[in-house]
């Protein structure tokens, strides 16, 4: 079984495009005989329902975007020639001009724990002014500032 990275649809090994969302699965073409099953990957016991609400405050625009209904959000910008869309689109806040990648970071909530992962963005991500390594998760606290390229975003975490 291979799992579509975009919509989590399970596909047979050898699938070239996800039947559900049309994402090109080229890079997953390799069979993954021992790959963890869908349930294991996405409903592991360590996964807990979110117990906090998160909002992102776009500092330059003075706007607050609440993140609702999921336990993981991808954040970036939408442009026309893009197969995989982020959950949160920052393009209306001059994301392109500020060097935000299309898939820049993901924010994950498990219980009270919130983490951020840079998804291999071009211009990188800073957490409270320090650059973080791509594809590694870092814990987030209420009031932390993330800098995506040059765009500053403050993370607001509240108990439900």
């Amino acid at each position: 079984m291979i799992i579509c990275p975009n919509c989590q649809n399970p596909e047979m090994p050898g699938a070239v495009f996800c039947q559900r969302c049309g994402t090109n699965l080229d890079s997953l073409l390799q069979s993954q005989p021992s790959a963890p099953s869908f349930d294991k990957m996405y409903k592991s016991p360590s996964e807990q329902a979110p117990m906090v609400n998160i909002s992102l405050s776009i500092m330059d625009a003075g706007q607050v975007l609440p993140l609702l209904g999921k336990n993981e959000y991808t954040i970036g910008r939408i442009s026309l020639d893009q197969p995989v869309l982020p959950d949160v689109d920052l393009s209306s806040y001059l994301a392109y001009e500020k060097g935000v990648s299309r898939m820049h970071i993901s924010v994950r909530i498990s219980g009270r724990k919130v983490t951020v992962t840079d998804l291999g963005s071009i211009n990188g991500t800073q957490l409270n002014g320090k650059k973080i390594l791509p594809n590694q998760s870092y814990p987030l606290d209420h009031g932390d500032t993330l800098t995506l390229g040059k765009m500053k975003v403050q993370v607001l975490i509240r108990e439900k």
């Binding site: 079984m1 047979m12 090994p13 070239v16 073409l29």
Partner: peptide, 16 residues
């Protein structure tokens, strides 16, 4: 063919 060879898998697979 969509792939050059078929891996031996314990599950069904797709080929185009």
């Amino acid at each position: 063919y969509s792939r050059e060879d078929l891996p031996l898998l314990a599950e069904p697979q797709l080929l185009y």
